[in-house]
Design a protein around this nucleic acid. Structure first.
Lengths: 167, 167
DNA sequence: TTTTATTTTCAGAAACTTTTGAAAGTTATA
DNA sequence: TATAACTTTCAAAAGTTTCTGAAAATAAAA
């Protein structure tokens, strides 16, 4: 296999992985391309490599910047914008953990807090409702804590925890 | 707020959470309904409560069974099938962790192993490729380990780990 | 066996998401 | 200022996923 084959294989698979995670394929593929590139790339280079339209590349680059995974760079004498991605897998993980906490955990937490305040009767249905929602609330609280911790931790802490986990 | 309002709010939000996670909305809503129900439900009851077609309920119930989250039950004297869900949040987490490991982590692991075998030259591009893919491979390996451990661990282990994480 | 109850399947419709490409907007240079 | 280089936006097209409902298949009861 040549580098080009391996590279496109990696980009494709990263795209599939992304779409299993609610991140759209184009966004994941652009990030994969930037991960593999030793230098920062322009919109036109990305369009050319991934055969995507300008609009699509622009939209998804902005989404990646939004997620804190991709950054802009200006080169002296060049008018174009150059893009590069965070390459440290640990930092990417932190960034994604924080983003998912905000987008996925917080809304459920909030909903459960609203629900918590409701006065309920004593029917079997109501007791079950109370029981299940309280348990989920406690669990979500713990998850939120873990993700917050990960988002603010450093690499060594994480590696140590992994070690202990696997002991 | 009445029970019914709270209940539908919970079901809606669970559906949104699910779709952020690549689990489809109907599937997540059916599971939410079963979570809140003190008794097992028939296809017709689910159709009625969630205003979904028979085909849709049937398809998604089967997907939930596939994921190991929902079970069938037969009641004496009844011809219909009754469905109930796992309610222990810890067991649900284990189940989902294992399922996601299989569906998301393993394919990437496999792709990276294939890529690992490729003989590469000394160009900057090739060196970068090697570096990035090896780092991801090592990280994915650790993640796989953690998810495997979670899938086979018991609740106390997990709680203890959470405690230590948060120390 | 026939009838009835129930579950499963699947083609087409509806809903939703992604992508394109051209036009509008912005910024830098001459 | 005008022109050129570039980025952003957005309506429409293409693609994908989900949902419906009726027909086919299966299983139980008469």
């Amino acid at each position: 296999m040549k580098l080009t084959d391996a590279k496109y294989k990696f980009i494709q698979e990263w795209g599939v992985l992304g779409s299993n995670w609610g991140i759209n394929r184009a966004m994941a593929q652009i990030q994969a391309l930037l991960l593999l590139s030793p230098k920062s790339l322009t919109t036109d280079e990305i369009m050319e490599e991934l055969k995507m339209s300008r609009g699509n590349v622009n939209m998804n680059i902005r989404a990646l910047i939004d997620w804190g995974l991709v950054f802009k760079e200006y080169k002296p004498g060049e008018r174009k914008e150059f893009f590069y991605t965070e390459k440290d897998v640990w930092k990417i993980t932190k960034q994604v953990a924080e983003e998912r906490r905000k987008r996925e955990i917080l809304p459920v937490k909030q909903m459960l807090e609203e629900i918590e305040g409701i006065e309920l009767g004593k029917s079997e249905e109501e007791k079950e409702f109370k029981k299940v929602t309280s348990e989920i609330q406690s669990f979500i609280g713990k998850m939120d804590g873990v993700l917050t911790k990960i988002a603010s931790a450093d690499k060594n802490w994480f590696l140590k925890v992994l070690m202990r986990l696997m002991n």
